[in-house]
Design a protein around this nucleic acid. Structure first.
Length: 599
DNA sequence: CAGTCCTTGG
């Protein structure tokens, strides 16, 4: 007997002719969306005997196994009671388990049952699910064995089988095995499946942090689809290589591939982080010209771009024209306002969001808290933090605590900040202690600072930025012995901080500068300009502010250190490569140092 | 196989 629907109060559709034929029940089952209606149809199928129709039975199984209202144990019960399930039903139950959170590897157990004689042979639809199941459990051994089965059964040309195998190997970190699928592939070189296979490999390299291997394979492949290009752009953005992302965006067009909607959504975050307003405007214009719809998603990316590129009026203007149901659209704007120190505007839009009935996400609160932190609105920050928890039931993430600790610390409430760190509902990370420690230096709170420093060294024993922060903290206390110890440790363990970096776009080309950077083709002119600028400023009474250089070296050396900061080089380059009066937009990965700000 | 917003520090 098949399990019957158990609810006692079902309203059954009358058993009219309309549902007495197999074909109409079959259709109803295929189109069925609600679980309750499904159970009624299931009951009818049993009552009328239609359930013996293999097509109807398979459809019943499909609904319970892989529809949105799936119920795995119900599905297995149905499957087990099918007299002779066909391969379609075997594949359905295998897929159901492979996609389940509870027991993906049960898919393999069912597959083993399927391998007995007298049962249907697995087909090309069996294997993708099995590889997915193995991948989710990192079951490389099982995966390899099933790989052999699939090859023996002749699926070595099947795109779906091969791509899912590639996914399995890349997710298990077996890039060599994954690459063999390409080199020994029977796929047509220019085929869609071959492109997918390559894309998965490229993604696999990126997942393992091997971005240059990814790029090499990308350059070698001669079957690039627009998805390949989009993927490479997004991967570069993901790892913070924004200039590379934009470069790929250029090369793509040189290669004659037209950017699509996803390309624009993918490249905009990179453009934002480079502050390349001109390029961002071009992307906006491209969308308009090519009838690419600026919906909430693309619109949010554009709002973010205008905000991060310093064009906050444009951001607001565009925001007003967008649909406003998506919290991301709001957080893009609120984040932009926070970045610009327009805390009250950020709060204003937050209230508008609430009035519009949009449920704020935790990211929106990051924007609001960040705004409060930058503007020193401590009381307001506390109010919104509490509001997030009590009204919206959102669990604060470590980032929210980061904002709060930063807010309290910057405002000088170091003891309160430390108390929050000690009482927060999760283990504080290095970011939290960095916020705390850096404020201890500014507000001269050595006791709190020493405690934070201890935690920091424990949490991030090999992070360059933490060590610089530690060194600066001890230097501010005049504890040069401790400074030397930190610096020595850095040398011994080869710990380096990732360098400050500034970008400036000129004529649509991104120029990247590091500290004391002499690599640019126009480096001679740049440095002549730097000296000229410094000379003129000195005449006007400018004195370099070297208080940020916490090293025991003489003043002259400090002067030359701050003069070659990346943002000054970028400004000098901007001056020699644009017409007088042109605005220069420089963006950098770190905070601008005090002297550069003054300069 | 590709997509928007996300704390801190140097």
């Amino acid at each position: 007997m098949l399990p019957l629907a158990s609810s006692p109060t079902l309203t059954l559709p009358s058993l009219s002719s309309s549902c007495s034929s197999s074909s109409s029940t079959l259709l109803d089952l295929r189109n069925c969306k609600s679980f309750n209606y499904f159970r009624q149809l299931h009951a009818i199928a049993i009552k009328t005997g239609q359930i013996t129709d293999p097509l109807v039975a398979a459809e019943v199984l499909r609904f319970t196994a892989i529809s949105s209202g799936r119920d795995l144990s119900y599905a297995l019960q149905i499957f087990d009671e099918m007299p002779e399930p066909n391969i379609f039903s075997w594949n359905t139950i295998i897929r159901a388990f492979s996609e389940s959170d509870e027991a993906p590897l049960d898919a393999v157990r069912i597959y083993i049952r399927l391998l007995h004689n007298d049962l249907p042979k697995p087909n090309r639809y069996s294997y993708p699910s099995l590889f997915k199941a193995c991948a989710r459990n990192s079951a490389i051994k099982e995966g390899r064995q099933i790989h052999c089965h699939a090859m023996k059964l002749g699926f070595f040309k099947d795109g779906f089988v091969l791509t899912n195998l590639a996914r399995l190997y890349t997710l298990c970190g077996r890039m060599d095995d994954a690459r063999k699928l390409v080199t020994r592939s029977f796929l047509q070189p220019g085929s869609e499946a071959n492109a997918v296979l390559h894309n998965i490999l490229i993604d696999g390299y990126c997942g393992l942090g091997m971005i240059s291997n990814a790029r090499q394979l990308f350059d070698e492949m001669n079957c690039k689809s627009v998805i390949s290009w989009n993927g490479m752009i997004s991967r570069y953005t993901e790892v913070g290589l924004f200039k590379e992302a934009v470069d790929v965006f250029y090369v793509m067009q040189v290669d004659g591939v037209s950017p699509n909607y996803v390309t624009l959504v993918g490249v905009l975050p990179a453009i934002s982080r480079l502050g390349a307003l001109g390029l961002g405007k071009l992307v906006h214009a491209y969308a308009a010209k090519n009838e690419i719809e600026v919906d909430d998603v693309l619109g949010s990316a554009l709002v973010d771009m205008y905000g991060k590129c310093g064009s906050i009026e444009e951001a607001i203007h565009l925001f007003e024209a967008l649909p406003k149901e998506n919290p991301v659209t709001w957080s893009a704007l609120i984040g932009g306002l926070a970045l610009h120190g327009q805390a009250h505007d950020a709060i204003h839009y937050f209230h508008m969001m609430e009035q519009a009935g949009v449920i704020p996400s935790d990211v929106v609160f990051l924007g609001v808290l960040n705004a409060c932190s930058h503007a020193g609105l401590v009381d307001e920050g506390k109010v919104y933090f509490n509001r997030m928890v009590t009204i919206y039931g959102l669990k604060p993430r470590i980032e929210h605590y980061g904002c709060m600790v930063d807010m309290l610390s910057r405002a000088g409430f170091l003891e309160e900040a430390e108390e929050l760190v000690n009482n927060m509902s999760m283990k504080p990370d290095d970011v939290i202690y960095k916020a705390l420690l850096s404020a201890c230096r500014i507000h001269d709170k050595p006791e709190v600072g020493v405690r934070a420093a201890k935690h920091l060294l424990q949490l991030a024993p090999a992070a360059g930025d933490c060590h610089v922060l530690l060194s600066n903290f001890y230097a501010s206390l005049g504890d040069w012995e401790a400074v030397a110890e930190v610096r020595l440790r850095m040398k011994k363990l080869d710990i380096r901080k990732n360098p400050g970096c500034s970008w400036i776009a000129v004529d649509g080309r991104i120029n990247e500068f590091f500290v004391e950077d002499y690599s640019h083709p126009r480096t001679r002119e740049i440095h002549l300009m730097l000296e000229e600028m410094a000379g003129k400023l000195n005449e006007e009474g400018y004195v370099s502010d070297t208080t940020g250089v916490l090293l025991k070296i003489d003043e002259e050396e400090k002067d030359s250190m701050v003069l070659y900061h990346s943002e000054k080089i970028a400004v000098a380059f901007g001056l020699i490569s644009t017409k007088p009066g042109m605005p220069l937009r420089v963006i950098k990965n770190l905070r601008v140092c005090g002297d550069c700000h003054e300069f």
